[in-house]
Simulated assay, not measured.
Amino acid sequence: GWNNGSVTVTFNASDTLSGIDGNSTEAETLTSEGVNQTVSRTFRDKAGNSNTAVLSGINIDITPPDIYGSTNSSNANGWYNNNVTVHFTASDALSGIDTITPDITASTEGINQSVNGTAIDKAGNSNTTVLSGINIDKTKPAITITSPESKDYLHSESILLNFSASDMLSGIGSIPAYLDGNNVTNGQTIDLRNLALGNHTLVVSAYDRAENSAGKSLTFIVKPLPAIVDVNLNRNTLDKSSNPKKPIEVYIEVQGYNVNAIDVATVTLNTANGSVPAQLSPVEFGDYDRDSIPDLMVTFDRRAVNAIVYAGDNVTVTIRGRLSGAIFEGSENIRVIE
């Protein structure tokens, strides 16, 4: 019942007796939009009789409908990390909307994608809109940890942190990282002397500009400097009945390091039953075993050592301390008698 262009109405008149006075055919063209428009014409015959013809219900709509496309909001960077539904709405002031493109789901990753929608009114006028600028990135960033490696490190070493992240679409937004729960940054140097011995974990996260996230962790182990220790006992045997006033001498070698840098106040003799601190004196430096590697001789109170060993046992004695701030450790097995 609608026209989307001008409408020409033609009137034809006839009279079988006197005939039509004037033209028997007349036409009028309607060009204005409107609902239920009317056109009429009056004809007369030559006898003076007249009649009027009325044609109504003429609907003209030549204006295309208005159509708009919309989506849910992207993030602050203009990106989506999931499918995007484009919804179209349309309006038409005269004939009304007949059809409109249904919702379209954009699911493919890409930059500045476009979706088209079309609305057609009841007069057959159509209009198409293009919703562009749709950026979709569903892929998590890729994280690379170059340093540290998943291996053992000596307590005297330093590590230069080296990690990165990449993202092929939206790009990287941030790369937070934590070492044992403490914030660290790429390129930071970690002095392992400031860490405890044992396992340590670096956790790196990456967020792209579409808010996809990824995580990667790496565990490394910090170990003490390996020391060679010699508990100066006859046949590696500790006789608890020996003179308690005579201290127990221990010789310490740490290959590649100057044992003069050992902080004697940190040195302890350890067994499964306890720990004894080294005496601050006497302390001597020399090559006691003549292997061309310097030794440091420290002493321990015999009575204190006797208290943490038991006769009849084979005991592992561990000497531990700090050398230039780094922990060293060495062990020797002894036999205990009384």
Rank of each mutant, 00 (worst) to 15 (best):
P294W: 00
P294K: 04
P294G: 04
D295C: 08
D295W: 04
D295I: 03
L296W: 00
L296M: 13
L296I: 14
L296F: 03
M297Y: 09
V298E: 15
V298D: 04
V298Q: 06
V298P: 02
V298W: 04
T299E: 02
F300I: 01
D301N: 11
D301G: 02
D301W: 14
D301A: 07
D301T: 14
R302M: 15
R302P: 02
R302S: 13
R302N: 12
R303V: 06
R303C: 06
R303Y: 13
A304P: 05
A304Y: 01
A304Q: 12
A304T: 03
A304E: 13
V305C: 06
V305D: 01
V305A: 06
N306I: 00
N306E: 06
N306K: 09
N306A: 10
A307T: 05
A307G: 06
A307S: 15
A307R: 15
I308C: 08
I308E: 08
I308D: 10
I308H: 05
I308A: 09
I308K: 03
V309I: 14
V309Y: 03
V309F: 03
V309E: 08
Y310N: 04
Y310W: 08
Y310A: 08
Y310C: 10
A311N: 10
A311K: 12
G312S: 09
G312W: 06
G312K: 00
D313E: 15
D313C: 07
D313F: 07
N314E: 15
N314W: 11
N314T: 12
N314R: 15
V315R: 04
V315Q: 10
V315M: 15
V315G: 13
T316Y: 11
T316F: 11
T316V: 14
T316C: 00
T316I: 08
V317F: 02
V317E: 03
V317A: 02
V317I: 15
T318C: 00
T318D: 06
I319C: 00
I319R: 07
I319P: 04
R320E: 11
R320Q: 09
R320G: 12
R320I: 02
R320H: 11
R320F: 01
R320K: 14
G321D: 03
G321F: 09
G321Y: 00
G321L: 04
G321H: 07
R322V: 03
R322E: 13
R322N: 11
R322Y: 11
R322I: 04
L323S: 11
L323C: 13
L323Q: 09
L323E: 06
L323Y: 03
S324W: 09
S324A: 10
S324Q: 09
S324F: 15
S324L: 01
S324G: 11
G325H: 10
G325L: 03
G325M: 03
G325D: 02
G325T: 15
G325S: 08
A326R: 07
A326V: 07
A326N: 03
A326T: 05
I327P: 07
F328W: 06
F328P: 04
F328I: 12
E329H: 00
E329I: 02
E329R: 11
